[in-house]
Design a protein around this nucleic acid. Structure first.
Length: 211
DNA sequence: ACGAGGATGCTCT
DNA sequence: GAGCATCCTCGTG
């Protein structure tokens, strides 16, 4: 597959309900350009996080806004323009890659939880030496950030403009219908909302299950 | 096949 | 100081 066959996802795509964006990102692609290499990966699993529910990192800031105070700290980015990257450093070791959703001023993001490598697989393997097979290159949110070399340098950056990192899909691509919904993984709040989305029968979805 | 536990550091209280 | 949107290794069966 070539990056030329794909059209970048624009602001209007992300400026919508977070769950809708999370569903429609399934089957779309992440394009990551590093030097002369173009890495392309199909999105197969996502989760929606919205400012009005307590699992969202923006929750405390959303409450603050209700009281007329300004958002602050790391999660203030979640109130920025849709299409902005929110990159979170987790468990002292792993970067997790999100894209900001909802109109500016409302907080929301979609966490990318798993990808299927499509192009530039050899380069991804260099970033993921532990992967024993191609399916293990990006079958988890920490793993895919490694495979695509996504880290702090993208936090707060607009993916509507970046040459190095953006979302794309073939023109005229229809929304996927074979989608499995389930509760989100690894959280302690709002555990029961079925806001995790996966492409059905996809080998590269994450292995994690609820505790 | 599966589960427990360790690595590791930022953010917020 | 606690908690965390994880991953990996090493036990056991």
């Amino acid at each position: 597959m070539n990056a030329q066959d794909l059209e970048r996802l624009e602001r209007e795509f992300f400026a919508r309900d977070t769950r809708r964006v999370a569903r429609e990102l399934l089957g779309s692609f992440i394009v990551r350009k590093i030097g002369r290499d173009t890495l392309i990966a199909r999105i197969v699993e996502t989760e929606a996080y919205r400012g009005d529910e307590p699992a969202c990192h923006a929750y405390a800031n959303a409450q603050r806004m209700q009281r007329g105070e300004a958002p602050r700290g790391r999660s203030a980015v979640l109130f920025d323009e849709p299409g902005t990257a929110y990159v979170y450093f987790n468990y002292g070791m792993y970067w997790l890659f999100n894209v900001v959703t909802e109109p500016a001023g409302q907080a929301g993001a979609v966490l990318i939880r798993a990808i299927e490598p499509v192009s530039g697989i050899e380069r991804m393997r260099e970033f993921r030496p532990r992967a024993k097979s191609d399916t293990e290159i990006g079958n988890g949110p920490g793993k895919l950030a490694l495979a695509l070399d996504i880290g702090a340098e993208f936090h707060g950056k607009s993916l509507l403009r970046s040459r190095e990192l953006f979302f794309a899909r073939p023109s005229g691509m229809r929304a996927r219908r074979q989608i499995v919904e389930s509760p989100r993984i690894g959280i302690s709040q709002a555990k029961d909302l079925p806001w995790r989305f996966q492409l059905r029968d996809q080998a590269c979805v994450s292995k994690q299950t609820r505790r």
